[in-house]
Amino acid sequence: MSRLATLIDEGNRPVVTAEFPSIDGGGLAAVEKAADELRPFVDAVNATDNPAAHAHASNTSIAIAMSQFGLEPIMQVVCRDKNRIAMQADIIGASLFGIQNIACLTGDDVTAGDEPEARRVFDLDSTQLVKVASGLAEGHYLSGRAIKQPPALFVGAVENPFAPPLDYRVMRALKKAEAGARFLQLQIGYYPERLENFVAGCVEHGVTRTTALIPTVVLTKSAKALSFMDESVPGISIPAEMIARVAGAGDKDAIAEESYQLTLELSRHALSLPGVSGIHLTDFRHDGSLERLVRDLRIGPAFAPDPVASASGTTSV
């Protein structure tokens, strides 16, 4: 069982996951540097799979390298670039190196990237991939061919509570949970009420009985970054008043501070919802704000109060 799975199962504190930066060159030293920056503050980190349809060092190579540098990887697998044979091979191959956490995604379309002329694959969809990956852990490929000593995978997926059809998103989460997803990292979102409705729906329909919900927040430095996400990132919409609030904060430093405060508020709100098991952090600032956020929230390996110590503290005084 992966450390992430254990932490979620125990449920003693919110888990903290983050996004690993894309790596292109610089050898393993580049991976080590990024791993060193994240390691103290997070429980596990997503090794992305050609995010936004841009080629980078592969999900499997980054996941393996991360684990060598003592960072627990969540290997993302997107359906856009490979067929069912290749995706199963990647998961089984990575598992030889101890990779256990697998996040199954549809993937941004090729038109979102810098090679829009590429062939899109989508041989499986993300829900089917969840089921296929779960099957690998049960000891067989999709064909039925048996796997001796199958890997102990912890399979999850992503869901977007903020994109239409809003009413249907809970049912889609349920479908993924029933297919075998044990965690759902949620898309970046700036509509707290939509998150609230989604999480409440997941609790009501039993999704959270089997599956941990992990909302995502983003650390940004400027209103321009928010506008960019609003306009250019598929599936992300940001209310105009939120962008205006950050833009109108004053000079550059004041704007950066207001951006941080917005992220802090969204994080506190997300973590306050019954049914939420942790938080996923995407850091576009790289200025120490990630550490500040987990410190302010008092979460993660570095800053969470030790639940055992605090529990025994109440009785041993």
Binding site: C79, R80, T106, D108, D109, T111, A112, R120, F122, D125, S126, T127, Q128, V158, E159, N160, A163, P164, P165, Y168, M171, R172, K175, Q187, P234, G235, S237
Partner: peptide, 20 residues
């Protein structure tokens, strides 16, 4: 465009239109 058979991807636009 992604031939999804189990529901919408996460890229649906705010107006309900297709990412692609």
């Amino acid at each position: 465009p992604k031939t999804l058979r189990n529901g919408p991807c996460g890229g649906v636009r705010e107006d309900g239109h297709c990412e692609v």
